[in-house]
Write a protein that binds this DNA or RNA. Sequence first.
DNA 1: AAGGCGGTCAACCGCCGGGAT
DNA 2: CATCCCGGCGGTTGACCGCCT
Length: 305
Amino acid sequence: MGRLPCCDKANVKKGPWTPEEDAKLLAFTSTHGTGSWTTVPQRAGLKRCGKSCRLRYTNYLRPNLKHENFTQEEEELIVTLHAMLGSRWSLIANQLPGRTDNDVKNYWNTKLSKKLRQSGIDPITHRPIADLMNSIGALAIRPPPPPNATSCLPAPALPLLHDAPYHAAPGMRQQQQVVVARIDADARASPDHGQQLKWSDFLANDDAAAAEAQQVLAGQYHHHGAVAATGGGGAQAAGSSSTGGGGGRACGGGVGGGDDGAAAFIDAILECDKETGVDQLIAELLAEPSYYAGSSSSSEMGWGC
DNA sequence: AAGGCGGTCAACCGCCGGGAT
DNA sequence: CATCCCGGCGGTTGACCGCCT
């Protein structure tokens, strides 16, 4: 059983707000305040869902909202905070007076993420894309093709040994999309194969992220000018690729810094491979031409035709 | 001129957490 | 403790607009 709808959808208007509706809502909120949104539509004489009223008010009608373009300083702050908090837009928006979470989210999705990508920074991890490709290239090992297979293997055939459940902080959810692929030999070759690396060992908890954000806002963060540089700064804020060093618990190293969970996790796996000699096996497998299809870059990565 | 296409952004949807009962 | 209700949040959608061919 799903939840009951928040309002009677049959009698509720949807779509863009008219100036008349805006005026009614504004008049009501200015005299009565916002109070209980579920009763606002009825009391304000609007055929709208309460949630719709709240959204319209907070994103558009609320006093002191900025409607002009984002400034360079705001851009840099968004990038920095996103590097630490992930897509927790309301938290980010709280640090930008006059901006709403919807504003920040839209601006990120349409402009900033693209800008970062063009600067060679992965907008999800805030690490240089080249680094990520190297990591993935070292990890994405594919099983030998079946005898009758064509030279093109589908990516989903990858075994996922470390795709274990973890308690991703909300801001880290997108990092679930990072596929960490390993070969079975890894687990067998490891003397500690009973233990597995887990994302959770490498993820910052919310408090830590929030604390760091506060440090940034307190002026302890020295940003690096342009967004491209700030992206690097984001990577810096999240720890360099070597900060995860020492590897994960399974291989006896220390746990990577919590503020760069994904990077530390990947680095720990690489470190573990080194200790167990699996990296040699991986290198041999990578050197085997039959694992690759064609010569395009995506094919070289073994991701299809 | 018209259709295709991509970018932008307001709005919706569904889930979640917290407070009230 | 369990359930309900509400507000808040993040992801997604779709309308609109301008540019290009």
